Computed example of a mutant assay.
Amino acid sequence: MQKPEPTAFPVPLPPSGSATEEDVDRSDPVYRHWLSEAVAKVHADANRSADTHLLSIPLPASWDVDLYLKDESTHPTGSLKHRLARSLFLYALCNGWIRPDRPVIEASSGSTAVSEAYFARLIGVPFVAVMARGTVQAKVELIEFQGGRCHLVDDPSEVYETAARLAEETGGHYMDQFTYAERATDWRGNNNIAESIFRQMTRERYPVPTWIVATAGTGGTSATLARYVRYALAETGICVADPENSAFFPSWRDSDPSVTTSMPSRIEGIGRQRVEPSFVPGAIDRMMRVPDAASIASVRVLERLLGRRAGASTGTGLWAAFRIVSEMRERGERGSVVGMLCDPGERYVEKYYSDTWLAEQGIEIGPYVRRLEEFLGGALLS
């Protein structure tokens, strides 16, 4: 393609020739045309997508506390991470980090990789997901269905270094969701998840949530929620529920960003062995550590409430939301609590919905199921 002639200026340019004057032009019209088309395709995907539903969870009306789940499983790639992946791709494209025919590489346990594979295929670049070998096969198949390739590692703590190395070796771009999640999203608005929740709550009896409960994988969602409620002058508290074997909770509790853990989280998509750069502890009002058995019990009970299965990360947040509802009842408070339905449970049939897997892991969900049944009452679960 012939480079276009420079645009004429309305007044003469000053003569060049100064010994210190330099002019380096790295513009490439072919690349800029590709970039414009890539950004337009990502925008078009957002324009085609309706907003996700806000589901009302049945609770006794006499409690005067309402509970909702923001159903992020209805995105085109089936999870909360679709929003993140779109933001990360726009951020990287506009920064000039993604180039034609060069791979995008990500360290991901699954759902982010599924969504990023979708956007990579949308703009026509290769995608490689670096993930732990123990990730459920269903997620591997979803990534491959979206056109991505999976690079499995035995030690989950090595995914970051491996992804960076592969990007360097191939001349590709390491997306690094764990660093850029909190800055790629426009937290002031632009239909981010917080703005969407507040808009959908406007006609509810308690339209301003007392609490919003999130979970942390990168920390980007909790950062977006916390920043938005402060920007919107809302008195909503932000609670982050964290699973076992995650560094986020002890780091937040002890104000120690150097905390690490020796074991990876068993709840896919959330919990990390280190504190990720996108985790913004100062913006969070409360944290809860949730036992893995309670997380899984919660999604088993949720299936009876809604007739739908959800991933265990949903259960981690739901257990925390139920605790907050119980505390509000005890104090005689009225209000609303919003949690997240992060992804569908069909991805985890071989894990969280398998009694065999639970037995192998030594996870006993029975006591937590009974606590939830007692809390909710038989009528709601019949």
Rank of each mutant, 00 (worst) to 15 (best):
G362M: 10
R86Q: 15
S295M: 11
S115L: 00
H151D: 09
V130T: 05
Y368M: 11
V369C: 07
R347D: 08
W187C: 03
R266Q: 11
V104R: 00
R304T: 07
H75E: 07
P281K: 09
D176P: 01
L166S: 05
D355M: 09
P76H: 00
A85K: 00
A40H: 08
G271C: 04
I238Q: 05
P12M: 12
P264L: 08
P4R: 01
V349C: 06
A85P: 01
V125R: 02
E158S: 15
R121F: 09
Q2C: 08
R199L: 12
L341W: 03
V39C: 09
V39K: 06
F145N: 04
C239E: 12
P126G: 04
T261R: 15
E235G: 13
A163I: 01
A234Q: 13
V208R: 13
R370Q: 15
H151Q: 05
D101R: 12
I193Y: 13
P29L: 09
M263R: 14
P291R: 13
W319D: 08
V240K: 05
S73A: 14
R48C: 07
Q2K: 14
Y91W: 15
F119R: 00
T179W: 03
R149A: 07
G172C: 06
F249V: 06
A294S: 05
E182K: 15
A310W: 04
R83S: 01
L166K: 00
D343T: 05
A359R: 14
P277K: 02
Y91L: 00
V104H: 03
T316M: 10
P100M: 07
L306K: 11
E364Y: 09
L302W: 10
V140N: 08
E204K: 15
D25W: 10
S87N: 15
F145P: 00
E330S: 14
I143L: 12
N47V: 13
S73E: 00
P14C: 08
F178V: 00
W211D: 07
G311H: 12
R370I: 11
G315H: 09
I324F: 11
V104S: 06
